Simulated assay, not measured.
Amino acid sequence: MTVRPIRLFGDPVLKSPSAAIEKIDDGVRALVRDLLDTVELPGRAGVAAPQIGVGLRAFSYNIDGDIGYVLNPVLVSVEGEPELTGEGCLSVPGLWHEVMRHPHARVEGIDLDGRPVVLEGDGLLAQALQHETDHLDGHLYLDRLDAQRRRTALREVRESDWF
């Protein structure tokens, strides 16, 4: 079991768009194992590859005990009016803010055998799909906060013991 350390706010890998996985090899298989091991810890709904220092399009999820992964995920659709939803992030520990998220989301990608994967759902799954694909595009949830909440959040980051 390899639980990888989580990269924190300020690490450049978190602000860089991730590259598509061109070839599924032993390195990608090891990445998936590490993503799955890392997301299994209690309180974790998702881990994107950049959060463990890898700039590739992959993430794992752990929603209501359903654990899995997707390679080269693309957020293909969201539905419903965006609503304020409480959200945190392993890369910004200890912070929790209201962010606008759609109540339904659909992601398409592939698995380790190159077969299509579709993840679709409401509530926490929809939120996680949007959150993790944001990571792969070089965005943190703090980027989605309105100006006032963002100022507050960035002050909390500066005052945190981990920054």
Rank of each mutant, 00 (worst) to 15 (best):
S160F: 08
L95K: 09
S60C: 06
L41P: 00
L56I: 09
F59I: 12
L90Y: 06
E98R: 13
D122S: 15
V92I: 15
P82G: 06
I6G: 00
L136S: 05
Q148H: 10
Q51F: 02
A48G: 12
D25M: 11
R29Y: 03
A128V: 15
E108T: 09
R4E: 07
G65V: 06
Y61H: 12
F163R: 14
W96A: 10
P93D: 06
T85E: 10
H102P: 07
D64A: 12
G86E: 13
A126S: 13
D146H: 09
G46D: 00
F59D: 01
R4H: 01
L142Y: 07
R158S: 14
L119A: 05
S60Y: 04
V157R: 09
Y61F: 14
L8Y: 04
P17E: 12
P82D: 08
Q148I: 15
S18Y: 09
H131M: 04
S91I: 15
V76D: 00
H139F: 15
G43Q: 03
Q127M: 14
P5Q: 07
G65N: 02
L125K: 07
E132N: 04
D143H: 14
R149W: 00
P5T: 11
R101N: 08
V39F: 03
N72V: 14
Q130F: 10
V3P: 00
M1C: 01
G86D: 13
P116K: 11
I63D: 00
V28K: 04
R106A: 02
P50N: 06
V74E: 13
L119T: 11
L154F: 08
D137Q: 14
G121H: 10
R101V: 14
G10P: 10
R44H: 03
V99S: 07
L124P: 02
K15P: 00
V76Y: 03
G88Q: 12
G65Y: 02
Y69A: 05
A105H: 07
D34R: 12
R57Y: 05
V32A: 04
A45M: 08
R7K: 12
D146T: 12
V117A: 03
E159T: 14
V28L: 09
N62Y: 00
D134Y: 05
A45K: 05
V107C: 03
E108I: 06
D111E: 07
D64Q: 12
D113K: 14
I63E: 02
P73Q: 09
W96P: 00
G86R: 12
I52M: 01
P116Y: 07
D64T: 10
R115T: 04
D122I: 13
D25Q: 11
I52T: 06
V13E: 08
M1K: 08
V117K: 03
A126Y: 08
V117Y: 02
M1E: 04
A49E: 07
L41A: 14
Y141H: 10
A48Q: 06
V13M: 11
M100Q: 15
V117L: 04
L14A: 10
E40Y: 05
D66G: 00
H97T: 04
G68W: 10
S77Q: 13
L125D: 04
H104C: 03
R149V: 01
D111P: 05
I6T: 11
G121L: 09
L71N: 05
I24Y: 05
T38R: 07
R101C: 08
A126D: 05
Q148D: 13
A19S: 14
V107H: 00
Y61N: 02
E156A: 15
N62C: 01
R44I: 15
V13W: 06
G65I: 05
V39P: 00
R33P: 00
